[in-house]
């Protein structure tokens, strides 16, 4: 059955129609990025996880971090649990890799703010 979903790739929020019986054909998208999103959302939905980790040796006590790619939605909570065990030492720079291939996904956990 054709499923209707809202595209979250950009703030425009297109109303996509995805047909699992027709090779996950996507319609209703206004840009090409809606197609892979629509397919993935039904087959294997993924999300970027953003959070903070503790940091020592700086005025700030928390450092924002993110997965540099989307991870499977089902793994979000596990990623959060892992993030909560991490403590960084200042200085850090935007893009510094904290954990490579987090939980065997293709995503690295990276720093989002310069903190010295």
């Amino acid at each position: 059955m054709v499923q209707e979903i809202i595209c979250i790739v950009c703030p425009r929020g297109c109303h996509l129609k995805v047909d699992p019986e027709n090779d996950y054909e996507v319609t209703g998208n206004s840009c090409p990025r809606g197609i892979p999103y629509g397919k993935a959302e039904l087959k294997n939905p993924t999300r970027v996880v953003t959070s903070t980790v503790k940091i020592k040796g700086a005025d700030l006590t928390r450092c924002p971090v993110k997965t540099d790619q989307a991870v499977p939605k089902a793994k979000m909570q596990e990623v959060m649990e892992l993030i909560n065990t991490i403590t960084l030492e200042a200085p850090v720079r935007v893009g510094d890799v904290i954990t490579k291939r987090i939980l065997d996904t293709d995503a690295n956990l990276v720093v989002c703010r310069d903190i010295s």
Binding site: C10, P11, V48, T50, S51, T52, P64, K66, C112
Partner: peptide, 15 residues
């Protein structure tokens, strides 16, 4: 700290 900033301006998704 969430992402979604910069899609129009930088054509990429930033926190």
């Amino acid at each position: 700290i969430h992402n979604g900033f910069g899609l129009h301006y930088f054509k990429e998704e930033l926190t």
